[in-house]
Design a protein around this nucleic acid. Structure first.
Length: 289
DNA sequence: CGTTCAACCTGGGCGC
DNA sequence: TGCGCCCAGGTTGAAC
């Protein structure tokens, strides 16, 4: 579920943990599958305890919490670690009570009496990953070879140079995190609608002006969705770190609107499957190149 | 190079 | 009510 705007909102909701010290970390009843945690849960828990939280940031769809090892007030890089959490479909970072206790995967208690007292990773489907990495691990997991330029700052040049010669459908290409980081299924559909481009069109058939449009709409749609704190669709879904629903779903023009009239022209919105993902489009409005 | 499929999971919605 | 099936915001690896 969480794409760039949702993960960005989670990170902003964690602002209060920066500068705090971790008292203890716990994987309640080992509810995270071992394969989704790196290194072993006991090692992660031990290393987190006592660490100082230096910063919280986002890389693509990942939450990155920078830590200084216990007792190292100086910023020696070799004592830095990064807690990288990938929420995947249903993961949430919360500083308040979770929707259910049974899907809490990681709890981090903070020292002191300031608010928040803790933060946690809650994940209903349990597909999310938790990694505690050193600088080399971070580079491998979130570096330029893994993640392309961030969607909020993507340019027409970026897209044209990375995807311009590709034979893939443009929608599939926008979901490729190495090309542009942070775009997922909802916003790919919305960006292409606003760009007036059919999601099935092959990248190499798009001209310069089209890539400029896609980049501009990507920046605009993602920024607006961040402003609206992400998309919450239905119950038991994405929430902000303090458990409020986002409002970006109110800006959706095509996603989830199959059978409903296009807000621009009245044509019925269609749902097709492209690259194994539901894809929504307006045949009339999405014909440009 | 690109596509397709299965897998990893839980739970909501729908048809019968 | 209950059951079975399909669907879901993501990612990965294998097969073709």
């Amino acid at each position: 579920m969480p794409e760039l705007p949702e993960v960005e909102t989670m990170c902003r909701g964690l602002a209060g943990i920066v500068g705090r010290r971790i008292e203890r970390a716990d994987f309640p009843r080992g509810r995270v599958r071992p394969l989704l945690v790196e290194p072993a849960r006991s090692v992660v828990a031990r290393r987190l305890a006592g660490a100082e939280i230096v910063a919280v940031g986002r890389r693509g769809k990942r939450v990155v919490i920078e830590l200084a090892a216990a007792g190292s007030m100086a910023a020696s890089v070799d004592r830095r670690h990064w807690l990288v959490i990938e929420p995947r479909m249903t993961g949430l970072m919360l500083v308040v009570e979770p929707p259910s206790a049974e899907h809490v995967r990681l709890v981090v208690d903070l020292a002191g009496s300031a608010s928040p007292r803790r933060f946690l990773f809650w994940d209903r489907r349990g597909l999310g990953t938790i990694r505690l990495l050193d600088d080399r691990g971070l580079e491998a997991a979130c570096g330029a070879a893994t993640l392309g330029p961030d969607g909020l700052g993507i340019t027409g040049d970026d897209l044209a140079s990375r995807l311009g010669r590709s034979r893939r459908a443009v929608k599939a290409a926008l979901l490729d995190q190495r090309a542009v980081a942070g775009i997922g299924n909802i916003y790919a559909c919305e960006i292409l609608f606003r760009s007036g481009i059919d999601p099935r069109v092959t990248c190499r058939r798009l001209g310069r002006a089209a890539w400029e449009r896609v980049a501009a709409e990507a920046r605009r749609v993602l920024a607006e969705a961040v402003r609206l704190e992400g998309s919450s669709i239905g119950d038991e879904t994405y929430r902000t770190a303090d458990s409020r629903p986002g409002r970006a779903q109110t800006m959706h023009r095509v996603y989830g609107r199959v059978g409903e009239p296009c807000r621009a022209c009245g044509t019925v919105i269609e749902r097709i499957v492209l690259a194994q993902r539901a894809t929504f489009l307006c045949r009339h409005c999405q014909r440009r190149r």
